[in-house]
Amino acid sequence: MDDKQLQIWVEEISLRSFGVPFRHRARFNGRLRTTGGRYFMKSHDIEINPAQLETYGTEEVEKIIKHELCHYHLHLTGRGYRHRDPEFKALLQKVDGSRYCQSLPGQARRKPLPYRFKLVCSDCGMEYLRKRRVDPKRYRCGKCKGVLKLGNL
């Protein structure tokens, strides 16, 4: 499938599911890695991850397109278009769009940074684990108000 066929497909889905035409550009973007698609608020264009189509097929991509069209139509009408907005959630459920896209195989999940630093209270021995380095002079122990010392794990 190329960009021209995707454009026609998005226009058909918009008319069939929303009853309103899609008047902007839809295209594939092979650089997308962690998302199925995205909607641009300034240009009102939609980009779709082609790897989703290759991996999961047209049914899953149609749900992604419906998700992006929910952003599109709600934004253009001045209603709540963000993921957290109740209008977005209701419209997405009404048109049977996907809330989240499936992760692609081979994509490693990001691991949270392990704790690298430890603040230790010199009075009571209370330990505070931190991912980022902090200046211990700016803080005191929350338990006894003692002086903190920075150490590595």
Rank of each mutant, 00 (worst) to 15 (best):
M1R: 12
D2Q: 12
L6P: 00
Q7P: 00
I8T: 14
I8L: 13
W9L: 13
G19P: 01
V20G: 02
R23I: 09
H24I: 02
R25G: 00
A26G: 02
R27F: 07
R31V: 04
T34Y: 07
F40Q: 14
D45N: 15
N49E: 05
N49K: 04
P50L: 14
Q52H: 15
T55C: 15
T55M: 09
E59M: 03
K63A: 14
K63I: 10
H73V: 11
L74T: 08
L74Q: 07
T77C: 09
R79L: 15
G80S: 05
H83E: 11
F88K: 02
K89N: 09
L91F: 01
L92F: 03
K94I: 01
V95K: 00
Q102E: 09
L104S: 05
G106P: 13
R109F: 01
P112E: 14
P114E: 10
P114I: 06
Y115E: 11
L119A: 14
L119D: 02
S122I: 05
S122K: 13
D123K: 15
D123N: 11
D123Q: 13
C124T: 06
G125T: 06
E127S: 04
L129D: 06
K131R: 15
K131N: 06
R132S: 10
V134E: 02
P136E: 09
R138C: 06
C141A: 11
K145D: 13
G151N: 11
